[in-house]
């Protein structure tokens, strides 16, 4: 039971990170209906920017951790947003009116570019970062086994909840959210009504990239090691989460992230760590057999 509770805590933490990245996939899919394959690599870039900024701050003498982290977060969000915007501008916008597979191929191409770019400019070795946020609370203690939640885990879960609430409000309450929903339904009509479609789509990419950069910072602080390849693995998981929850749905992305995170953690804890990815993907396939459009998506009725 205690072991179970501990794994629950770990799984929810992992799921939160996946959920944050999954939102980026789901928002882009919702608005232009394409799989942004480069999103995982945007996440990877954000971890690198965070790491570099953090070390740079330490080297110029800013050692008070909360301030340093705040600066890192702001810089990382801004720079990653520039990357997200650039990818959209270079690889997706020229193909907006093209057929479905064209942007998918440019997205895969961009993903290859970003991975190799980071490998070239930062080297292929893993980059370690010593743990920065330490300390933990004991939730319960029984039979000599303690269930702990670390400060880092609390930070991750809290940040995710706050960002989720903020984003839901942004989509449902603000004019930008209204523009996004309008573009989602009908781009031509939205343009006729005076919405700048290109700008809205760019902003969507910027928002997705910023969220990914928050997830990137969390990932960096939680795991402490990054390399140029993490974007692929984490990206695929997050994308799986987005599809599992019903791609295009914000709560779905979060739910999918939690499910994937929990499945992975419990499978590693109780069965075998080697096959945790197989477990996550199998859950996806099984769910899609019975609910072909994910958990929270309303079934699309195709009309002729």
């Amino acid at each position: 039971m205690e072991y179970f509770a501990q794994q629950m805590v770990n799984g929810v933490t992992l799921g939160s990170v996946y959920g944050l990245i999954a939102i980026g996939y789901t928002m882009v899919y919702g608005i232009i209906g394409m799989i942004n394959f480069a999103h995982g690599d945007i996440f990877m870039i954000s971890t690198f920017i965070s790491l570099i900024t953090f070390i740079a701050l330490l080297s110029i003498g800013i050692t008070w951790i909360p301030l340093a982290l705040l600066i890192v977060l702001i810089i990382s969000m801004a720079m990653t947003a520039v990357y997200g915007w650039t990818v959209e501008r270079l690889a997706y916008r020229p193909l907006r009116a093209s057929f479905r597979l064209a942007p998918l191929i440019t997205a895969i191409g961009m993903s290859i570019v970003l991975q190799n770019y980071v490998q070239i400019v930062q080297g292929a070795r893993v980059k370690p970062l010593p743990p920065i946020i330490k300390g933990s609370y004991t939730l319960m203690e029984k039979n000599g086994f303690t269930v702990q939640i670390s400060n880092m885990q609390i930070l991750i879960i809290l940040t995710t909840i706050i960002l989720m609430l903020a984003f839901s409000a942004l989509i449902s309450k603000t004019s930008l959210g209204r523009c996004q929903r309008a573009c989602e339904q009908d781009q031509t009509m939205a343009a006729l009504l005076g919405i700048n479609v290109d700008r809205t789509i760019s902003l969507t990419f910027i928002m997705g990239a910023s969220l990914a950069s928050v997830a990137g910072l969390m990932y960096l602080l939680y795991y402490g090691v990054i390399d140029f390849y993490i974007g692929f693995v984490v990206g695929i998981k997050a994308f799986t989460a987005a599809v599992l929850g019903g791609i295009g749905s914000l709560p779905g992305a979060m739910l999918g992230g939690l499910i994937i995170g929990l499945v992975e953690t419990f499978w590693s804890a109780y069965f075998s760590i080697e096959y945790k990815d197989v477990a996550a993907f199998s859950i996806l396939i099984i769910v899609l057999i019975f609910m072909p459009s994910g958990l929270l998506d309303k079934p699309e009725v195709e009309k002729v």
Partner: peptide
């Protein structure tokens, strides 16, 4: 060979933008 895959990705993007079909 280090730049091979970088150029490969760039070529994928460029060709697709140049000839979307």
């Amino acid at each position: 060979s280090l730049y091979r895959m970088l150029l490969f990705g760039m070529a994928m993007v460029t060709i697709m933008v140049w000839k979307p079909r």
